[in-house]
Design a protein around this nucleic acid. Structure first.
Lengths: 106, 106
DNA sequence: ACTTCATTTCGACGTTTAGCTAAATGTCGC
DNA sequence: GCGACATTTAGCTAAACGTCGAAATGAAGT
């Protein structure tokens, strides 16, 4: 889960995931959307694989990347869900900040 | 928004936000939860401030940090919301992956 | 077999980051 | 004003990161 947030910390990788949201794409197809070198993109893909955010399928001489939506959701919604009552994520009842620390607003 | 994901990429900072979810806390109070030095924590706080994820209030010789939930939600839910139909985040209708690329699962 | 194409691995480089200690800043009680 | 306390700033080191070009791998096509 730490790996997911690490993977998400780079704009290029987030953009890759957004592209993958529409449809699976090959490495080269994805790479066309970015002004960086092939090896750089390959490194980004490796990070996404390491976070288990994508599925890989080798087809001939191309590699198809496919988004693993559930992993993204589990990490992101699991985290935000703990903060606010949203997304069906079951969060503890006592989530409403009430204790005004020690001598703050008084 | 990139700053938010960057801030979230560190486990310590995520944990700080989780602590802040319960109630506002002072820098020292937060720092007690982590095995790192004060200055290191201060640097983490600076990142969180830079991402606008916390509000700061100086009270006497202490500094109170307060979670800015809406910023967290905007970034996180805005991102996940674009992927799946969840959290009331309005996402485009054509989000269902349908095009099976070229010669994939066939 | 040889070439070509798609992608990854390797080795290097510059930047960023998390961590530290020491020192500075600011606030309180005396 | 002085000393104690809370926090930040400054200056540093080591590790991690994003990027590259060159080389390696692997699958077709000829």
């Amino acid at each position: 889960m730490n790996a997911v947030f690490k993977a998400l910390s780079d704009p290029t990788r987030r953009h890759v995931l957004e592209l993958l949201r529409e449809r699976p794409m090959t490495a080269g197809e994805l790479a066309e959307h970015f002004p960086v070198s092939g090896p750089t993109m390959s490194a980004h893909f490796a990070v996404l694989r390491g976070a288990d955010l994508v599925d890989v399928q080798k087809v001939g001489k191309t590699v198809i990347y496919r988004l693993k939506l559930s992993v993204l959701e589990d990490a992101l919604l699991g985290f935000v869900g703990a903060f606010s009552a949203v997304a069906g994520a079951d969060k503890p009842a006592g989530s409403r900040p009430a204790a005004p620390i020690k001598g703050t607003t008084s």
